[in-house]
Design a protein around this nucleic acid. Structure first.
Length: 474
RNA sequence: GCGCCUCUAGCUCAAUGGCAGAGCAAUGGACUCUUAAUCCACAGGUUGGGGGUUCGAAUCCCCCGGGGCGCACCA
């Protein structure tokens, strides 16, 4: 294109597509307001009409029509030859066409960036998921749904911060590099620090650092933490994902259950207008309070057999065999109970349920149940068949914590590569005294999936993990 | 890691063993009220890569690669 101005170093729009639409609403047909505005964005549609050109300009808020008659628009020929996808800045008069469409009459314009590559089909957009994920910068322009989801995600995180801050929680940042991976049962990524000449692990959870801060006197802390787990990819798993973790001193698990119900209901109201939402074509009622049911109850509902920590291990193994749950000799009744629950009952839940009473054997950081021997005060919220959060009354006793760590370490030596290691500094922190504390971890990605009605985690992560692209070079 | 499906023009898709096509985008032209504008013209391809079967392969077979779904692992 020969007839274009040099791209300026800055530009000052004073209006947006959505702002204009709400400010001018229904003006009627053929109105010239005399109001001058300056807008900027990408030209997404263009319709030549001889001595008149219509365009559609998209910005981050929406789209607005451009109206460019030859007798008022400077460099009219060049305007008509703009490529779909070019960024332009336009100054002009707010008006409506004879058909009543709100438009800007183009009285001055400048190119802000030329696209060197053609945009996807203006009607069909992008269908290839690979291209959508790898070239999100294109997807966001042509897939309205993608833009909506990521705007909702941003709003959800912002609302969550404000809600927690209003309740006295303080946001903190803890290390991503961990000398000992801890706080969850998962395989870590390993990397190396050259100057210190030590291997470090990318965090699988911020839990142990956040509880150190409660020991340090920050009574209500939270972190919105990117965590990393060296595991498979699926529609529900990305190797890096975002967890909200919070710790509240003097609270127990029942306080945390209330907090989860209220937070999720608040977000649902703010983001969708109510606590009854539609997820993947099915109604989902997030209204508090949520049902509370033990693992044993949930299993019994599905298989008609009541099992628990008192069930003989051979009976548990037989049930696991019957329901095709793989098990190992090292599994105790508690682990078998959890495995059986996950296989038979978890996916069967739809409306929210707090699954409560997790065995000590599978909950190395949770406090023993005040009434039920062998159990902990731990719960998970299951929504739409998937785990949304994991929470418990925190284990306080350093001696008991040491036993749990050592038990985990033995499982690690026995070949479980997700077992925890003994974290001596964390034990030292507990020696100084952790007050009664309730803790929570919520998968933010999954919460966004629920409230945005999205079926795959890749659609709520801007740049999901993919195999590196080949042959991209010159 | 295993199984199934998929890959055709920049994008969205046809062609199922017999001449690789359409729409949009691009290019040239017509049009002063369009709404995915319309109309005329013109271009656009190593059918993901390699090998094989066949007179003939986008199509059938094998290997490799990308992606999707399911299983496993996990949140």
């Amino acid at each position: 294109m020969t007839d274009r101005s040099p791209v300026p170093y800055r530009f000052d729009p004073d209006a947006t597509a959505a702002g204009l639409k709400s400010a001018y609403g229904e003006l009627g047909e053929g109105v010239e307001t005399g109001d001058q505005v300056v807008v900027a964005g990408r030209l997404m549609l263009r319709r030549g009409q001889g001595k008149l050109v219509f365009g559609q300009l998209a910005d981050s808020t929406g789209r607005i029509q451009l109206f460019a008659p030859a007798d008022v628009t400077p460099r009219f020929e060049a305007f008509g030859k703009l490529s779909l996808g070019d960024w332009i800045g336009v100054s002009g008069e707010v008006m409506t066409t004879r058909k009543g469409e709100l438009s800007i009459k183009v009285l001055a314009w400048t190119v802000l960036a030329e696209t060197q590559r053609p945009f996807p089909d203006k009607w069909h957009g992008l269908a290839d998921p690979d291209t959508r994920y790898r070239q999100r910068y294109v997807d966001l322009w042509v897939t309205d749904e993608a833009r909506r989801v990521f705007q909702l995600r941003s709003k959800l995180v912002s609302l969550t911060r404000r809600w927690l801050e209003d309740r006295g929680f303080m946001e903190v940042e803890t290390p991503v590099f961990h000398p000992i991976p801890g706080g969850a049962l998962a395989r870590p990524f390993v990397t190396h620090h050259n100057a210190l000449d030590v291997d470090v692990y990318l965090r699988i959870a911020p839990e142990l650092y956040l509880k150190r801060l409660v020991v340090g006197g920050f009574e209500r802390v939270f972190e919105i933490a990117r965590v990393f787990r060296n595991e498979g990819l699926s529609a529900r798993h990305n190797p890096e994902f975002t967890m909200l973790e919070l710790y509240q001193a003097y609270a127990d698990w029942t306080d945390i259950m209330s907090l989860v119900e209220e937070l999720v209901a608040h977000l649902a109201v703010e983001l969708t207008g109510g606590t009854v939402v539609t997820y993947q074509g099915r109604e989902l009622d997030l209204t508090a309070p949520w049902r509370r049911a033990s693992l044993s109850e949930l299993i019994e509902e599905q298989i008609g057999v009541l099992v628990g920590l008192g069930t003989p291990i051979d009976d548990m193994r037989a049930l696991c065999d019957q329901y095709e749950v793989p098990w190992q000799d090292s599994y105790g009744v508690g682990k078998l109970l959890l495995e059986l629950y996950e296989k038979t009952a978890e996916a069967a839940q739809w409306n929210p349920v707090f699954a409560i009473d997790y065995p000590v054997e599978v909950s190395p950081l949770a406090r023993p149940h005040r009434e039920l021997a062998g159990m902990t005060e731990r719960f998970e919220a299951i929504v739409a068949g998937r785990e949304l959060c994991n929470a418990f009354s925190e284990l306080l006793d350093p001696a008991v914590q040491r036993e749990r760590f050592e038990d985990q370490a033995r499982q690690g030596e026995a070949g479980d590569d997700e077992a925890m290691a003994v974290d001596e500094d964390y034990l030292r922190a507990l020696d100084y005294g952790l007050p009664p504390t309730g803790g929570l971890g919520i998968g933010i990605d999954r919460l966004v999936m629920l409230l945005a009605d999205v079926g795959t985690i890749r659609d709520v992560v801007l740049f999901p993990t993919l195999r590196p692209e080949q042959d991209l070079g010159e």
